[in-house]
Design a protein around this nucleic acid. Structure first.
Lengths: 215, 215
DNA sequence: CAGGGGTTGTGCATTATTTCACAGCCAGCG
DNA sequence: CGCTGGCTGTGAAATAATGCACAACCCCTG
């Protein structure tokens, strides 16, 4: 069913996971891969994976599997990660610095092109190859850069302000690392990454785990 | 239904989100809160939230809402975040450094008590108040520390090795920041946080968004 | 003490997602 | 060319999660 109606979010997440894996094995010169091999490598259930692909049209070859190179390109096309995309970052603290370093790696197509902060002591400092700019000039700067993707790496108290500034500057999707819920107008996408929250869920798991090595 | 059978994962994630919010408003001396107020603040559907709580027993009072202090304590009890818990971190790069700083904040009960790396240039360095140790001594060190929660902040190629070492040292749940899928034995919990993957999903959203300000 | 406005807890209907299971296809081999 | 072993694509069944709707409840006011 090549009609791309409404794609489940878990499907997109799995495709992203799979893309990561394909990038990995591509460098090992593997030419072809089956859905069950993907299952053992990534934990994604084979039938699930095939169905995920089926939302977007035909891919693999029965009896053979998927051509690694082709599959990777196709998923890249779906997720729109084939071409380099500019990203702007707000918050030049430790996390912000780590993110700039991380996305400085060449193996993915997201590139942080500007860093902003509101702390006068940080403005003007150099983070890797970027100079931290005043968040007050974000809109102005992005009018030239034209980034649509923004990352919030500031503290929770500042997150909503930052969000408003980003949206105002034409940012359409936001990756939010601040441990708080941000409000955005319709038509702006958000994903939250909250470290404490992740640990809290793990902490629950931990409490439910049977005690090991009793004896 | 106070029987705590099998809790949906989304429920735990919502409770964690809510806990974060409660911590926030508690400091503002709000005494009571309704599920619909929680909805407007966090985006969690009110009925959904009430049902989440119902998995764990009775809480609020009809006509009034929830006592903020009590609710927070109860959720803390569910997620087991009332008491401070030791966490060990592997990977003393930029991200690792940011994480140590982040969890150094006193407002949550996770505390990084040791940092490990395999890079000789990093071993012995000081990260905030901790000295980076050789990952080869992880098991030995944790025999004394007794941490059950581990964080992987190393590169993808090292992730599986790190995982094995952690599990061997008695770590039962792992927060994995390395952009790869790690394999763990039964009874060990994992949550993955992958920046590229988050951006990839946002990139898909972005491509589906209608173009704004046409005119 | 009766009535009203507001809020909870929850069974049930609805929607979303996963898993199964199998027909159909592919390459290789004799 | 016909058979075999392996793998895909997908409808249908099963499972999971969400959202609705309403009885029961609480405080306040008069």
């Amino acid at each position: 069913m090549p009609r791309e109606t409404k794609i489940p979010l878990p499907t997109l997440e799995r495709l992203a996971t799979c893309y990561r894996y394909l990038t990995d094995i591509e460098s090992r010169n593997v030419e072809t891969i089956s859905s069950s091999a993907i299952e053992t490598a990534t934990g994604i259930h084979a039938a699930q994976f095939r169905k995920d692909l089926s939302y977007f049209g035909v891919f693999g070859r029965p009896g053979i599997g998927y051509d690694v190179d082709d599959l990777k390109r196709r998923i890249a096309g779906i997720l729109k990660v084939e071409n380099e995309q500019p990203v702007i970052l707000v918050g030049a603290g430790n996390l912000g610095s780590a993110l700039v370093g991380f996305f400085g790696l060449p193996q993915h197509n997201f590139h942080i092109v500007a860093v902003f902060d509101n702390n006068p002591r940080k403005i003007g400092q150099t983070l890797w190859d970027l100079q931290v700019q005043d968040v007050g000039r974000l809109s102005e700067t992005n009018a030239q850069l034209g980034a649509r993707i923004g990352i919030i790496a500031g503290p929770a108290v500042a997150a909503q302000n930052i969000t408003d500034v980003l949206v105002d500057a034409g940012i359409r999707v936001i990756l939010n690392f601040a441990p708080t819920t941000i409000r955005v107008p319709d038509g702006v996408g958000v994903r939250n990454v909250c470290f404490i929250q992740e640990l809290a869920v793990l902490s629950y798991y931990l409490s439910k785990l049977p005690e090991p090595n009793v004896g």
